[in-house]
């Protein structure tokens, strides 16, 4: 089955949210617009809307996560859904329960949506392929493949600061090879029509034939960030510094760390983003992380609204009255 077909129903509406790749521009814009509308909710004193009342959402995390799981949980609660957080560590695997058993058991408890994170690329697709027809699957990160809600919260951040994508030069710096965030960002930027997408990394942290993702490849940070409007710094996992990929954190920062001086090469209004958590002194120095160009904390804030948008859109086709409204609209 075509992967894009898996995500949308016959009318082009969101069914699962697994990857940005292959989605229509209008759908991405709809998610961003919906997220904008939820930003108000988040700022109210009573931070809830009753959209998903009576629905049960399961956060099914096979990999440790604080930030992503928390924002998904908050997003679900602000939509008035009931939330179940399940962290599945190795113990369930040791007991011999397969992923499919886990899925079937939770389905039997009449859960409506699964938010899945797993270390294997393709896990969200696997869940979506095997889920019951009434269940939606949201990818909260699968291996190195995709992290679509993170990418869209980044797009919302960029749009709120820069408006139109067409003229933007966006630079993604760091470990592209292992980054599901970068892959989803690149797809989103290209679908939304960004003027130019660049990646900057040493060759050990780039996938082979990286240009086929739709990016211009740079190995030199100073050349790569010249005149950039948006600079996205990726997190460098500690374990990458111990193997054969990089000699040391010191050399990485010297070559690829974002400093105030290097930031001066970018457009004067450039914004600096990071999916978090930051390794200060590895990806960027504190002066930049906490400086005027940094929008890192806004990203976290928008993350809740984007996840509310994705959850409500994926459930829309199943909300009471959805049929009636469609008939009226049609």
């Amino acid at each position: 089955m075509n992967r894009a077909d898996l995500q949308v129903d016959g009318d082009g509406r969101l069914r699962h949210f697994l990857t940005v790749e292959g989605l229509h521009r209008d759908l991405l814009v709809e998610i961003l617009d919906t997220a904008e509308s939820f930003l108000g909710v988040v700022e109210q004193s009573v931070k809830k809307v009753p959209l998903l009342r009576g629905k049960t959402i399961v956060n099914l995390f096979f990999e440790a996560s604080t930030r992503t799981r928390t924002t998904f949980e908050l997003a679900a609660k602000r939509l008035s859904a009931d939330v179940l957080n399940i962290h599945v560590d190795a113990s369930a695997t040791i007991k011999g329960e397969t992923l499919l058993d886990t899925l079937r058991n939770l389905e039997a408890m009449h859960c409506d949506m699964f938010v899945v994170r797993h270390a294997d690329s393709g896990t969200a697709h696997f869940f979506a392929q095997h889920a019951a027809p009434h269940v939606s699957v949201i990818n909260a990160g699968d291996g190195r493949h995709a992290h679509p809600t993170q990418a869209l919260l980044d797009m919302l951040t960029i749009r709120r600061h820069k408006g139109d994508f067409g003229r933007l030069r966006v630079v993604i710096v760091g470990d592209i090879l292992h980054s599901r965030v970068a892959r989803s960002q690149i797809h989103a930027l290209n679908i939304l029509g960004a003027g130019e997408v660049r990646v900057v990394a040493p060759r050990t942290l780039l996938p082979v034939q990286a240009h086929t993702l739709g990016v211009h490849v740079f190995h030199d940070l100073e050349a790569g960030i010249r005149d950039a409007d948006v600079i996205i710094m990726l997190r460098l996992q500690r374990e990458r510094m111990r193997g054969a990929l990089l000699p040391s954190a010191h050399e990485y920062f010297r070559l690829y760390g974002l400093t105030a001086q290097r930031l001066g090469l970018a457009h004067p209004d450039a914004i600096v983003m990071h999916p978090g958590p930051i390794n200060r002194g590895v990806e960027m120095d504190s002066q930049v992380a906490d400086g005027a160009h940094s929008v890192i904390l806004e990203q976290v804030h928008y993350g809740i609204a984007v996840r509310m948008a994705v959850m409500s859109l994926a459930m829309r086709r199943r909300l009471p009255g959805a049929e009636v409204r469609e008939q009226e609209a049609g």
Partner: peptide, 15 residues
Amino acid sequence: HEGVVATRLGLPGIP
């Protein structure tokens, strides 16, 4: 295979 599909899907490649 370590090639364009591995790059796109984020699957670990065998060169």
